[in-house]
């Protein structure tokens, strides 16, 4: 939870704060439940909720419609574009209007701000970053020896548990779930997220103890919110760090007798395909026609930062050995 009051008790109005998130200064009066790092300086964009759309008139037909449907048969996500303004529509959550310096949400259910927050911190901000040419990968990342180590995977693919295992070994968390990358003087850098992880209850218990009692990410979700740093689990690094390696977790099936850890380097060609595959908002990028610039950036990223397949046994009890294998591999670079 945020440590500063989110509401001004004397006026009853929300307090505006500036947060440093994915390399952006975001000013908002939204009552975030996640612990977002404070951001000094002028905001790059503002985020607020409104009772009405920020513009009048209709959008042209959507450029993207998700094939996944909600209980009412509506697409879970549609993407509209009109001039400088984009609209991400999530029927169960709300409409997010993305402009050059602001994001406005017209919530479908003002009593459920957590879903607004989950979507903003994931798909919406990833889309906003892609608009500006900053790709966001579906990855967790930690900092080892001052450098970013990323774990690329789908949901449930093992990235957060690997990051947590690295944190147990003393590596600070850089981000969980969304990793924005950008060219830097040293090659490429990873931008930090916020000091929180989303873990399965069994993972949270494994890393933090059975009595931790973390809240669920959302009432309909199974994962729990695990705060990071400030006396909670591990530490958080709120800086931009040069990227040194990406790993693609591949867990051996439970019951597989092989227990050793293998690390195989991918050629840059295959690395590019993996970056595309693990883009956070790949479908939106494709629909908006942003692929050419992203291909160019991913090609440079693949030549600058090694991508390796990390094959390891299933089971949290094996993670310390996996961590040692990763640290040895990083030392060998």
């Amino acid at each position: 939870m945020s440590e500063e009051p989110l509401f001004d008790e004397s006026t009853g109005s929300a307090v505006w704060r500036t947060y440093n998130l994915y390399g952006l200064m975001v000013a908002s009066d939204f009552p975030f439940t996640s612990r977002l790092p404070p951001g000094p300086g002028q905001p790059d964009l503002t985020f607020t909720c409104a009772g009405a759309p920020p513009i009048s008139g209709d959008f042209p037909p959507p450029v993207y419609v998700s094939r996944f449907r909600n209980a009412q048969g509506k697409s879970n996500c549609s993407f509209y574009r009109r001039g400088e303004l984009d609209l991400l529509r999530f029927p169960d959550v709300g409409d997010f209007y993305l402009g050059t310096d602001r994001i406005v949400c017209q919530s479908a259910n003002p009593d459920d701000p957590e879903m607004v927050e989950i979507h903003l911190l994931g798909t919406v901000l990833s889309c906003w970053l892609e608009r500006t040419g900053v790709p966001s990968l579906h990855a967790s990342a930690v900092v080892a020896d001052g450098r970013t180590v990323g774990f690329l995977s789908y949901n449930g693919g093992g990235k957060s548990s690997l990051a947590a295992a690295m944190m147990q070994g003393g590596c600070p968390l850089l981000t969980d779930d969304v990793l924005a990358v950008e060219p830097s003087p040293q090659g490429f850098a990873g931008r930090h997220g916020y000091a929180q992880m989303r873990l399965w209850p069994t993972e949270a218990e494994h890393f933090c103890g059975p009595a931790a009692g973390f809240p669920r990410v959302h009432r309909d979700a199974s994962k729990v919110r695990v705060p990071v740093g400030n006396g909670a689990f591990g530490t958080f690094d709120g800086a931009e760090r040069p990227l040194t390696a990406f790993y693609l977790p591949v867990r051996r099936p439970p019951g597989d007798r092989d227990t050793w850890v293998e690390i195989e380097a991918l050629c840059p060609r295959d690395a590019v395909i993996e970056f595309v595959r693990h883009s956070f908002v790949a479908s939106l990028v494709e629909a908006a026609g942003w692929q050419p610039r992203r291909l160019d950036l991913f090609a440079r990223l693949a030549l600058a930062v090694p991508v390796k397949r990390l094959i390891y046994p299933s089971g949290l009890e094996h993670l310390p050995r996996v961590r040692e294998a990763i640290l040895n591999d990083l030392e060998d670079r």
Binding site: C267, E286, A299, L303
Partner: peptide, 24 residues
């Protein structure tokens, strides 16, 4: 189709389908 060389290999991006292909 966009063509991007990576060392001696390459990646193709089909802008119509959005699909990527690797070339040895």
């Amino acid at each position: 189709v966009l063509f991007k060389i990576l060392d001696d290999e390459a990646v193709l991006l089909d802008l119509q389908s959005g699909q990527y292909f690797g070339l040895n």
